[in-house]
Design a protein around this nucleic acid. Sequence first.
DNA 1: TTGTAAGCGTTATCAG
DNA 2: CTGATAACGCTTACAA
Lengths: 337, 337
Amino acid sequence: MVEKNGTTSAPAGRRVTLRDVARAAGVSHQTVSRAINSKGEIDPETQRRVLEVARQLRYRPSRFGRGLVRPDVVTIGLIVPDVVNPFYPEFIAGVIEAADGREWQVVVASTENDRARELALLRSLGQQVDALVGYVSHTDAELEPYVAGVPLVIVDRGLDSETYALVRVDTETGVRAGLGHLVERGHRHIGLIDCVTTGHPDVRRRTLLDLAHTHGLPVDEECIIVGEQSMAGGGRAFETLRAARPELTAVLAFNDLVAIGAFQAARRLGVAVPTECALVGHDGLSIGELLDPPLTTIHLDKRRIGELAVRQLDQLLVGELPRPEVLTPKLLVRGTT
Amino acid sequence: MVEKNGTTSAPAGRRVTLRDVARAAGVSHQTVSRAINSKGEIDPETQRRVLEVARQLRYRPSRFGRGLVRPDVVTIGLIVPDVVNPFYPEFIAGVIEAADGREWQVVVASTENDRARELALLRSLGQQVDALVGYVSHTDAELEPYVAGVPLVIVDRGLDSETYALVRVDTETGVRAGLGHLVERGHRHIGLIDCVTTGHPDVRRRTLLDLAHTHGLPVDEECIIVGEQSMAGGGRAFETLRAARPELTAVLAFNDLVAIGAFQAARRLGVAVPTECALVGHDGLSIGELLDPPLTTIHLDKRRIGELAVRQLDQLLVGELPRPEVLTPKLLVRGTT
DNA sequence: TTGTAAGCGTTATCAG
DNA sequence: CTGATAACGCTTACAA
């Protein structure tokens, strides 16, 4: 009963194919296909036997062979700067959920905040998927040679695009709401911890300066400090800012991570939040609720961004360039103002 | 110069193939292949022309066609219960990083803590990838029909396996360290907020009871409460526990999320942490640092779990069932004890 | 019910 | 440098 070693059972290094199974089972490869896919039209006994042989041979259908014949499974590549930064998991979840509803698959890749890696991923992933979605920092011109013809949805890049689909975030409106709220509460000496970003105009800075101008607030360049985009960076920036401008009664942070760093620095410095200094973050991360008092923040629906990005793909995949989707953050007043 | 519509330029619904480009460019499909892949062996001028035609026709190589001929790109499917739960992003990052080092791709999918979905994903994803890695709650027997022959690494399931590769977590040792620490600090009335888990023995409960027995601590069943595995659940459980057993001076929580909920409940109840009641979490989430005082916890290197899972695949993919990898958590004393 | 033939889109081989 | 021709592993007709 045992075949001569290597003849019909174990093909050398090659993977086991339908034909290998067919040979071993003494049927045509077509019959094996029927058995594997339970296509009816097959004798139950034959099917049982074939399946048994397939199992013994550890046969696994090739996704490539299948995909060639019936290319149904859409796969999208998702590129984020960092999987661990609490901003992105929610976004990723939104994408995965929306994709799942369409029975699409999502390949996730991280640039680790490395712009060169971003381009490399765009190219390599682009070859393996039907479309790309990503937080991308480069300009259209820079992207072109790497993205080539791959459908791409760019998320929250501060620039418009003629070539790629976009999900935009109306940061200015959000920031305006946050600052307006501070002004309403009577704050005049307002500071900003900003961060450098690629492919983004200085929305927070511009909005603050503009608002200061409108309301005649005593805000000058020294009230704005540029720090590293992290909790530690936020802490350092807050200390510096506080030393330079002790009269500030409120600070807007680039995002919640930075704000949390600032919050902790304030505690270290003995600065009471919000009484001595109010604090407003940006992004609406749920971890902001862990502070005491919880962080007031300009909240962005990150999950929805992911959904919208996938929705953009619906059109992109049939060859149409959709109009940008725009999301507007909402002020979420918690306890630090 | 413009071709008759539909003849050589825009093929009906079909995707544009190498041959379409070849026809339009007046060369053989093989020449197009060379042009696309910059294989040398081609006249620069011809290449330029072909590439131009390809661009116009919006030609994109098929990953299936390619994969068939040179099946190099390994793709692994990663199944997690929840992308947003702060435990998993770190694990995912570990997997992605390790995979990236091997130039593998990672398809991420979420069961949303739904056991039926877990099985469905195992089957559907399994058909599209070379191997699976996942937090999986079912037994081997339950998995068998869904996983079939797909190489699978099961992470932190409390059961052994003869069939699948494992990354185990030595929870007992971790819990023992956490409880031992409490005992050392003189705590005798120790409570536990436990949670129900599938495919897992009650490690925390058993370890606490065992330790209580050894040290003669006054710990009985009423000191152990089973709550929902979430911050809210942790909060409710703490309140109930506190009401039932006000004499408890320390509580071990199922994990950090639960611990944080308990921490906040304590604050609401006016119970001082750690002076009136010490608190130990589990998992070592970085958000535990945001509490004031920061959360003492039994820390698990989640990123490393991801790396180890991928390492298991190295052997699994060449047909060998590797020995389980075991990871031991380490006590991380911060401020709540 | 089963087998045969053709084709999916690509790359590799080998002549020209 | 270029072009036939033959795989790759699978499924869908269609014939037996």
